[in-house]
Design a protein around this nucleic acid. Structure first.
Lengths: 339, 339
DNA sequence: ACTTGGCACTCGGGAACACAGAGTGCTAGG
DNA sequence: CCTAGCACTCTGTGTTCCCGAGTGCCAAGT
């Protein structure tokens, strides 16, 4: 049904269209790629490809343009991820190595990725779920207020100001802090809820309300924030590209954390480090027809922390983009593991 | 030289042009604003205004458009800041009140401002300089590493991982922590350098290198980060507007922290809470000809913390924008003061 | 059976052109 | 000093026309 040559034609169409941004015709195609057949033959193949929905023509008597389905086939079977150059790798490494804290790592990563791919980069903050508690700190602010600071092994710091139901003396706060650390130090965040469940029992009854308040805020911090935070960079790269849909929609989507989350998608449980590519209409988000998302999880091995990726027009250089995303994910995983 | 009527004409031109986005002609102008003079008279005034550089015509026989100089005059003398509606104020208040920590305050502020003005909002994180130390925490990670956490009275938290020059036992770290807190608690950040200068003297000589390392990181944190962080939101609002210069340049500028800083400008020392308006070429940044910036400082009274503002096309509704910026600055100041 | 050259056809995009409409500057009169 | 009238100058739009790239199909060639 689709012999080798037809596939070669499709590949050629995708490559040419990506590089020129113009519908590609049979003649130019037969010349530039040495297909060793005449334009007429190419036309026949094109007709077949169009028949099956891999390509389409904007108007009668214009060249062909790949459809989403065409890109899909290209990505799945016709292309291979293009590794970065030595120089690029070195650049990544040194750039990321300069990071000073978690915020900085994420910031640098997203900028790097945007610059490397010349598209919009999106990076999700490492999930708290898989992290462990490094330290819990309770800082008295006033006699009715404390600040809760939670430090995880990833270097992530969460902070909340807590209004206590009653006045609690400082040394009592210190005691609670000791209790919390003793109980939680080194434990996985996911196990925190059960670990703290019997803590109130170990305090005199008049201190329990305060502790309960603190604990409820602690738990809230864990569930609420655990993977909400997402940043993007490289919006300027959208300026040149033209989407089938307006630029405005894309920018709006980028500012909606929820939409971004959905775009990055979920790490597939079986092959967590695989690249995910969503092409155009596969995104099933109306504002983003015409854009593709290349994403992957990052983190060490089976300990996937979160996801990162880029967003760009469907007409993108998939092999290069995929290479960059994969490489950056690897390096940032290393950096995080080392800290 | 510029009598009242000419000023009225200029005001009318600015208002009409802002609302219609089309060069405004003498006839339409004489009708819509009841100037009680004929178009011909208006034309004479226009000629005078053009003569002096307040307005210009895109091409012969088109209407007039305000120049940067024209907008400047309008802002300085012809307009007054438009206060927000009751409903809007209430909305601001409730929206900001829901903030849970400093990050959240800033995030909400910038989004709110973007939504309110329908332009790009820019908010600088509160400067550390004016804050005081609430608490310093040293958390041992490994035997050669500690995490330094600095909590300020504004709720801001800075964190750094420190590589120690030698192994230091945990109780020694705890001791240093006590020393630091005892020395710094409640002190202004700007006085930290001198306060810690003699700390090493108070430790046995073999612990001094470790403390020195910690202190150097602490000081570094203070000077490096103190006002670097800036966020923006509402980039989607740029999509509709047309700048004399490309959209790309504007987006690029927005992603450069340094440029943003310069755009927001500095709080004038004498009237710190005044609104600053920079119109078009006044920005003296080549990529942003065609954009204006309305900014102001925020913070309580004389304790100015940082700046916030919006960026949009020179053709913007200055009275409304200025009203929104001022209002948001006030509310966020309140919120921060209360926490 | 597939490939190839030839040929008529289609359609988008650019150039040339005319034209209506909005706006101006100028001048003369109130 | 304001106003009315008038001639002039543009831009933007719509129309027409034509070129060329590209196609589909058919018949001939391998």
């Amino acid at each position: 049904m689709l012999d080798d040559r037809k596939l070669a034609v499709l590949r050629a169409i995708v490559e040419d269209y990506v590089s020129t941004n113009e519908p590609v015709g049979s003649k130019a195609l037969a010349e530039r790629h040495n297909l060793k057949v005449s334009p007429a033959t190419v036309r026949n193949d094109m007709a077949a490809l169009e028949e099956q929905g891999y390509i389409t023509q904007p108007h009668t008597s214009a060249g062909r343009v790949p459809t989403d389905k065409g890109y899909r086939l290209f990505v799945d079977r016709l292309s291979q991820v293009k590794p970065l150059s030595k120089a690029e790798r070195r650049a990544i490494e040194t750039f990321l190595a300069g990071a000073v804290d978690l915020d900085d790592v994420v910031m640098r990563t997203v900028r790097l990725l945007a610059q490397l791919t010349r598209q919009v980069a999106v990076v999700q903050y490492p999930t708290l779920t898989r992290s462990t508690v490094r330290h819990v700190e309770l800082v008295p602010l006033t006699d009715r207020r404390v600040m809760l600071v939670l430090i995880t092994n990833m270097g992530r710091v969460e902070q909340r100001v807590i209004e206590l139901p009653e006045v609690v003396e400082d040394h009592r706060i210190a005691h609670m802090r000791g209790l919390l650390n003793e109980c939680l130090d080194g434990c996985g965040l996911s196990s925190v809820p059960e670990l703290v469940s019997d803590l109130p029992q170990r305090l005199p009854i008049d201190e329990r309300p305060a502790l309960a308040t603190i604990l409820s805020v602690l738990l809230e911090t864990l569930v609420e924030r655990h993977d909400e935070k997402i940043v993007f960079a490289g919006a300027a790269n959208l300026a040149g590209a033209d989407f089938s849909v307006g630029l405005r929609e894309v920018l709006e989507a980028l500012e909606e954390q929820v939409v971004l989350m959905r775009l990055l998608g979920e790490t597939s449980p079986d092959t967590p480090s695989a690249l995910t590519v969503r092409i155009g209409s596969e995104n099933a988000y109306t504002g983003l027809r015409g854009t593709s998302v290349v994403a992957t999880g990052y983190g060490q091995g089976d300990n996937q922390l979160a996801r990162l990726g880029v967003l760009g027009p469907t007409r993108m250089d998939y092999p290069v983009t995929m290479g960059a995303v994969r490489a950056v994910a690897r390096y940032v995983s290393q950096i995080l593991a080392a800290s």
